[in-house]
């Protein structure tokens, strides 16, 4: 995917914000792709965790906001266990999600979950989904 890096597209503010919310020194990422190779959600996503971190570090605000992958991460911590730079990747992804959720827009609409599902889902499924995917 070609990325345009120019004064028009680069927004340093997004790199700073994600660093601030996640508390992670994400510019340490060396783009090795270990995280992407381990991620169970990578195949279903539009971008890999490595790619997403790259976009943040390049200040590509629009592309970061558009990336569906931030919703897909299951916070499973498989990547974090092996990142050679010691980065907590799920924290970085959570920060991106929060940047969007804090605009008060839900990703999951609780009222749209089918009634039959509500009866069968364990409580922890709903509580965690609402924690991760609603404002």
């Amino acid at each position: 995917m070609p990325i345009e890096i120019s004064l028009k597209t680069v927004d340093r503010e997004i790199t700073r914000k994600i660093k601030e919310i996640s508390g992670e020194p994400l510019t340490k990422c060396m783009q090795c792709g270990t995280c992407s190779g381990l991620c169970p959600m990578e195949e279903s996503g539009d971008i890999s965790p490595r790619g997403l971190i790259h976009l943040v570090n390049l200040g590509q605000k629009d592309l970061v906001i558009k990336a569906e992958f931030s919703w897909l991460c299951a916070s499973c911590y498989r990547c974090e266990l092996r990142c050679p730079r010691g980065l907590d990747i799920p924290k970085i992804v959570e920060a991106i999600r929060l940047l969007k959720l804090r605009l008060n827009e839900d990703y999951v609409k609780p009222f749209e979950i089918e009634e039959e599902r509500i009866y069968e889902l364990p409580q922890i499924a709903m509580v965690s989904s609402f924690r991760k995917h609603t404002a």
């Binding site: 169970p40 279903s44 919703w71 897909l72 299951a74 499973c76 979950i113 989904s129 995917h133």
Partner: peptide, 23 residues
């Protein structure tokens, strides 16, 4: 044995969760 089952994605992204369950 330590692969994620898809966790809370079963609500928002059930297809993605299904792939890992299938594995």
């Amino acid at each position: 044995a330590e692969t994620c089952c898809g966790s809370y994605q079963i609500i928002a992204n059930p297809e993605a969760a299904s792939k890992t369950v299938s594995m």
